[in-house]
């Protein structure tokens, strides 16, 4: 199925969790907060969040420095 991740189109497996999607796409999960269709998903919920066709996903990565 197709999804939009950080503004880019990706084709991923049907009905997988956000956590599995990140693993499959080789994206590190450390210090990430996600937004799926405008709703914030924090790390504790990555393994519950089911990704559906045409979902719009944004990943915000927090890195140190300030």
């Amino acid at each position: 199925m197709n999804i939009i991740l950080n503004g880019q189109k990706y084709n991923i497996e049907n009905n997988i969790t956000l956590k599995q999607m990140l693993i499959n796409l080789n994206i590190e999960q450390k210090n990430i907060i996600a937004e799926v269709n405008g709703e914030v998903v924090t790390k504790d919920d990555f393994s519950n969040k089911i990704i559906n066709e045409n979902d719009i996903i944004e990943l915000v990565r927090f890195v140190g420095g300030g």
Binding site: N31, I33, K43, F62, V63, G64, G65, G66
Partner: peptide, 10 residues
Amino acid sequence: ECFDNAETKV
């Protein structure tokens, strides 16, 4: 949020 440390930011 103006921290230095990434974990504290999250």
